[in-house]
């Protein structure tokens, strides 16, 4: 339990650090994302993951679905705001996702396969 709290302190401190960085350099990032990037760099520099950090991050990541639920519910109360645009939204999402999936598969397949075609590598 104390291990989780110590890890939570570390995560919240990185969130604060992210907040400070975003404010100081007026970055177009949320403080959570800035904190995540700072934490990743810090871990890459240390090359070691502490038990505390693992203990605190695992349950939090597992809770993500619960934490975004209040935001998801809003769609039922703000649906009128987008009346008349639902067809556009569906077409953009379905066609857009199909096209981007096709592009990623094609690009990645070509690039992963290409070194094998050159025998001298």
């Amino acid at each position: 339990m104390l291990s989780i709290l110590r890890g939570f302190l570390l995560l919240t401190a990185f969130l604060m650090l992210g907040d400070i960085t975003v404010e100081l350099f007026t970055l177009p990032l949320s403080s959570g994302v800035a904190g995540m990037l700072l934490l990743t760099f810090w871990l890459l520099l240390r090359r070691r993951l502490s038990r505390d950090l693992a203990a605190a991050s695992q349950p939090l990541i597992g809770m993500l679905a619960l934490l975004i639920m209040p935001g998801v519910v809003g769609i039922f109360f703000q649906a009128d705001e987008f009346s008349g645009q639902w067809l556009t939204i569906f077409i953009a999402l379905i066609l857009g996702t199909l096209l981007s999936s096709l592009t990623t598969l094609w690009l990645m397949q070509r690039l992963v396969a290409s070194p094998r075609e050159r025998p001298h590598e």
Binding site: F8, L11, T12, F14, L15, G18, S30, S31, G32, V33, G35, M36, L37, L38, L39, T40, L43, L44, L49, L53, A54, A56, S57, L60, I61, M63, L64, L66, L67, I68, P70, G71, V73, G74, F77
Partner: peptide, 29 residues
């Protein structure tokens, strides 16, 4: 109301901040 609900549930949704920071751990792994 939804607005009232959002204000009340703020205590819970605040955790989204540290949870986003926590995503750095699997990224590192």
């Amino acid at each position: 109301g939804y607005t009232e609900y959002r204000r009340g549930v703020g205590w819970l949704t605040w955790l989204l901040g540290p949870a986003t920071v926590a995503l750095g751990v699997p990224l590192y792994q």
